[in-house]
Design a protein around this nucleic acid. Structure first.
Lengths: 347, 347
DNA sequence: ATGAAAGCGCTAACAA
DNA sequence: TTGTTAGCGCTTTCAT
């Protein structure tokens, strides 16, 4: 009801959400008036505003993001669309979050239900479901399809399609892969295998390209038999790694397209009784936090994930602000030498 | 795209979100029919459904989460409410995400705009803004206020208030802190300082309690001068750490209430020309991924963050499913000895 | 200064 | 089998 006997205590609020109607009723005004007070519009008597504010505090009312976003254009919320909260995504999130703090936007990281039938195109779906209503703009992590003609500004981080019409942040995959392979070559390896990433991703191609480039530079002939698909996942790497490590004249080193598949390779190597790096050198890519604590600690290529996230928000905010933003930002990737690489065994 | 001067994009552009009305018009049916098709309701002629489906595919229509959630009760989306995407939160997210996959729910991690005036009570605000409309239930990370009487099921992870009426997942902070302090004592330290966590958080009290307990067990008198507030943040730790390390008869070891403040302590120690662990031993708490790669690698208490996240979702799904769920799940924390602790220097 | 009413995109009764 | 209608909670004209 409108009067509570114990104003200092939490009042008996209506069951469920407190709506603007509840507030209006309790304050004895119309919902329009409450809305004006909440949004600081002019045309409300000070006394009325005062009373409404009290009721709001009393009832613990907060305007519903959903309802207001449906009515308003803006929400001051930016979405980060991702396929799941994996180490790659969470590192990016850290950078995004740190950069976004205090800029007046709220962050909403959204992971649609991933199942087999929406495994591809999740980003379009998520964007359609949220864009234009819930979020003012979006940062999409590793989109696999083109994002042309979206209803809100979009920044793609490490996208499959080159630029795909949207603004892009990525790191220099070719150079990174080249550095990784060169490191192995400089250690003395000649038979260097490569576990590919998801072949539908641009980054996977670029990493393979860097691998080949480095081989060519060292005059090592490319052997297609030493290249397998690992899909950027530890589990999918198991089989190809086993094939690679049990073949005659097996490779002495593996450049895996990302850290997760590098872990997969190391696991298989251990299963087969090999020691890393003594019997097999392994280089990853990404430098997720787990890479530093793995056993052995993983030599890998560090993508500046947090910096990439930070750049992405900066660009998005600029866009939302009606300003220009760079179309493509490419940050350098660098080799981090740890304990999973060493000179090849003397066979 | 030439008129950026006008921020108002009110006019209905032909290019923008595709709504159910667009689909209905294009298919020559009513919006109700489209809705039925989209939601697989009975009572639509096969031919009509076919045509509508085609138009939907053509236009790339997806139902708006916002609009449908406003109308429907359920959204099949669970919210993870957090103050920011810090290492603690992202580890939990990994566990949550891994456990939630394939369960038919979508995940929405929400970080409200953090500013000074809403620094406290953000969780209530976020919950009010999203609950009852956008999300079916919520997992709240480190809530600092009581969450009684919410409109949706809530699981609190590592909350300030004991149980606060809601379901809780946390780790054994007392035992963890006790193990940390005991480790230092066993190494031979006697003057062991403690950097407190945020004193408004339950976990901070429990960690101090474990510290005192361990001291008492070893017969070491408690010295209030050796306890300072660090607020769980590296920056806030700088001053108290400096005081501690420059005092006469300085401590030879510090048990910091979390890894972030342990880093703060180490930084100050380095500034003062001390080597860790040679001149000063430091133990943290949490075992965020950064702890393993820090220099020196940090001895700390590992909270099973991912497992905690996984348990939280499991409990929430049970609740949403109308089942019972444990009221309080407490997971064990364990000591991880790395390189930031050693016997005290011989003074 | 205030409130009535329209409508954002959608779903669910109910009619036709 | 279809369309009409009435809201979900909110903001925003436009009257009063």
């Amino acid at each position: 009801m409108s009067t509570d006997a114990h104003p200092s205590r939490l009042p008996a609020r209506p069951v469920g959400r407190v709506t603007i109607t509840d507030v209006a009723r309790a304050a004895g005004v119309s919902v329009a008036t409450v809305s004006k007070v909440v949004n600081g519009r002019y045309g409300v008597a000070t006394a009325t505003a005062q009373r409404v504010l009290e009721v709001i505090a009393d009832l613990g009312y907060e305007t519903s993001l959903v309802a207001s976003s449906l009515r308003r254009g803006r929400t001051d919320v930016v979405g980060i669309l991702l396929a799941g909260f994996d180490p790659f995504a969470t590192e990016l999130l850290k950078g995004i979050s740190a950069e976004a703090v205090g800029k007046g936007y709220e962050l909403l990281a959204y992971s649609g239900a991933i199942s087999d039938d929406n495994a591809v195109g999740w980003e379009r779906r998520s964007l359609s479901r949220l864009g234009g209503t819930l979020i003012d703009g979006a940062i999409i992590l590793t989109p696999t399809v083109s994002l042309a003609g979206t209803s809100v500004p979009v920044i793609s981080v490490d996208p499959h399609t080159g630029s795909g019409g949207s603004h892009v942040v990525d790191s220099d995959n070719v150079e990174g892969a080249r550095a990784a392979t060169r490191h192995l070559i400089e250690l003395g390896h000649r038979r260097i295998a490569h576990i590919r990433g998801r072949t539908d991703l641009e980054s996977a191609h670029r990493r393979e390209q860097g691998y080949r480039l480095s081989l060519a530079e060292a005059g090592i002939p490319f052997d297609p038999d030493l290249v397998r698909d690992g899909g950027y996942r530890a589990a999918w790497t198991t089989e190809p790694a086993r094939e690679l490590l049990t073949m005659p004249d097996r490779p002495t080193a593996v450049f895996a397209a990302n850290d997760l598949s590098a872990f997969g390779v190391i696991e298989v190597a251990h299963e087969l009784g090999m020691r890393v790096p003594h019997d097999l050198s392994v280089v990853g890519f990404d430098d997720i936090p787990e890479a530093a604590s793995a056993s052995p600690r993983l030599t890998t290529i560090a993508q500046p994930l947090q910096a990439m996230g930070a750049r992405a928000v900066t660009m998005l905010f600029a866009l939302l602000d009606g300003q220009e933003a760079e179309t493509h930002v490419r940050l350098p990737a660098r080799l981090v030498v740890r304990k999973s690489t060493s000179p090849p065994p003397v066979l």
